[in-house]
Design a protein around this nucleic acid. Sequence first.
DNA 1: GCATCACCTAGAGG
DNA 2: ACCTCTAGGTGAT
Length: 317
Amino acid sequence: MEFQLSLTSIPLDLDYTLNCGQVFRWSREGGWWVGVVDGLVLKLKQEEDTLKVKSSSEDADEKFIKKYFRLDDPLPDILASINKDKVMAGAISRLNGLRLIRQNPWECTVSFICATNKNINAIQQMISNICKHIGRRIEFEGNIYYSFPEPEVVAGADRQILENCGLGYRAKFVKEVAKRVVSREVVLEDLESTDYETAMRTLLAHQNGRKMLLGVGPKVADCILLFSMEKLEAFPIDVWIRRAVLKFYPHLFDSISVKRMVSNLKHRSIVPAEYEAVSKTMRPYFGRYAGYAQEYLFHYTRVSEPLTSTSEPLKPL
DNA sequence: GCATCACCTAGAGG
DNA sequence: ACCTCTAGGTGAT
């Protein structure tokens, strides 16, 4: 399968979209972006207002691409709606064309469980290892790629195999969650049709005094909801967003909250009460597309920081 | 509720 | 060559 997609009336910046830390399965190979999505290999290249698409499967048609890259989202309207202040205006003008991606719920869930306490390079490596070890082999244009393994395969895999993929203590979480999905105690796809609050409660739910989804806290849950459950109002709060909020948006909070946030900075991660407070303030502030605001703010603060050893190379201006 | 602390591991910097 | 620290947080106490 090979075709071109005209982007003259559809703003998209492929580099920002694939490099902003929302997906972990894409890499550059000789001028092309290469990734595996839903068990098929995609090769993409953007040239001005054209998106060149090559794929290992006939299933990767125009409709598939449009769905994956959320080209149905009215990006100009969305950006206008989140453009509430100077900071966001800067992020928008710097990163215009960055789009959220519509991810597979299962893969998304595992990806962000793995993402705790890891930098983006390490996360990509872990996911790649999982696919290489227990994914399905796919040949395309003379190269070998691997699909992301189904829940059944992960649930049946030895813990040791997952640990060997570099997951460390996350191996247990991933395997436990896989079992819950296989047993259908949790049906991830169902969350798509519920509202944000309900879906969030479901992801964080307990049963018989035990957590349903080990490794899924509020931040991971927000990522799952935003990237794979159509909850564009979700606003994942990680260390970067937390720093950005404290730096650029302290005026949205009362002085006591700000004081507490500053004193909480000594902790490496955000405490639950603070997560809730920031979420409850920032989501209404940006509105129904707060998730887009989060992604622009996240990537903007990262490209603005001087490059550190642990950060991945970012597209220059 | 709310505060601490440990947690696998790879990679960078001292 | 070693040691220390940190990375898109969460679980257990």
